[in-house]
Design a binder for these strands. Structure first.
Length: 322
DNA sequence: AAGACGAAAGTGGTTGA
DNA sequence: TCAACAACTTTCGTCTT
């Protein structure tokens, strides 16, 4: 049994391994996620082009993603909007000393200028991303979200931008939605309300953005598992690890008899903790538990009654060791 | 007095015609 | 697009510890 239950979102240890470019020795090796390749920013050498099928099932993609990304050094590039490559091309057909350019040179410059203009299309996207990334940092650190999940969120946000989902919506809302989604994907879900509170977005807008995200990116995120909430909640309530284990046990048995279908995972988590806390004589009030789980006492009550009834637990807390 | 209980009406989201 | 529906919330009066 591992003692590390990782309660209050303590950052997971990451192996930061810096890659150096074999061509020029630069450490500016960067991932291009849209292509799934790793390239040196200095000389442009592509180090690896292990194919990542962006069209494929999304979760496989993200797993691969996190694998490879964790090996790249500190400056994570999803959070960087401008790679410092912008150059300004003057409109005049003169070189630096003021001489007229030769016709070949001129057409060359013309082509460059064309790209310059094209790249300007991206600049509004860049501004959007810059703002979004700083908001993401703020939100994530307030919620104590570990880096890998932030990166996942940033990736989702980039996809959302590509699909034009942010137009007409607030950046903040979409950022919050991607963060919420990322947490769920990584099996470390946070209550929607918690995310909403930390951002300046109301719950309703956040929910709408989240659903839009799911639909548009064709991402299937399964219903969150109540068990994933337990370590956070129990530590917030300062409950012992035996309560934690008992809670998980209760949840598993509840699921086995189909008690959990159609029920809010948060309510289930709360109720299971309530029952376990009574059983092991570390009682917490319904109100306390409801508060951390962000549901109402009524919901805790309803779930808890079902659990006690269907799992045949005598309410005066015998450790019914089945 | 605080906690638990349960009824009743309201809310937002899903589903199916 | 609309209505029916299930789960959850809000509110509040009552019972229990």
């Amino acid at each position: 049994m591992k003692g590390a239950v990782n309660s209050t979102g303590a950052p997971e240890s990451e192996s930061a391994e810096t890659l150096t470019c074999p061509e020029c020795g630069s450490t500016a090796v960067v991932e291009d996620t849209t292509r799934g390749e790793r390239a040196c920013e200095n000389c442009g050498l592509v180090l690896s082009d292990h194919r990542i099928d962006t069209g494929a099932e999304w979760r496989a993609f993200s797993a691969e993603e996190s694998e490879s990304r964790s090996r790249v050094g500190a400056p994570m590039r999803y959070t960087v909007h401008d790679k410092g490559l912008s150059t300004v091309i003057d409109w005049r057909d003169r070189d630096t000393s003021g001489k007229k350019l030769s016709p070949t040179r001129r057409s060359q410059i013309y082509r460059l200028r064309k790209w310059q203009i094209r790249s300007r299309v991206h600049s509004s996207i860049d501004r959007n991303l810059a703002q979004a990334m700083s908001e993401l940092e703020r939100l994530a650190s307030q919620l104590g979200i570990p880096k890998p999940i932030r990166e996942q969120s940033a990736l989702l946000y980039r996809k959302a931008v590509q699909k034009n989902l942010v137009r007409g919506r607030s950046i903040e809302a979409m950022v919050a939605a991607t963060l919420y989604a990322a947490c769920r994907i990584r099996q470390k879900p946070r209550p929607l309300d918690e995310v909403a509170d930390a951002s300046r977005i109301d719950r309703k807008k956040l929910g709408q953005c989240y659903r839009l995200l799911l639909r548009s990116l064709k991402v299937k995120i399964p219903l969150s598992n109540p068990v994933d909430y337990i370590s956070r909640f129990t530590s917030q309530l300062e409950l012992s690890s035996s309560v934690q284990l008992r809670t998980i046990e209760i949840l598993q048995r509840s699921r086995d008899i189909g008690l959990t279908i159609g029920r809010d995972p948060l309510g289930l988590a709360a109720a299971a903790i309530y029952v376990a806390s009574i059983m092991l004589d570390e009682r917490r009030t319904q109100r306390e538990i409801a508060e951390v789980a962000r549901v109402t006492e009524v919901t805790v009550r309803n779930r808890y009654k079902e659990i006690v009834k269907r799992l045949d637990i005598n309410s005066m807390g015998l450790p019914s060791s089945h």
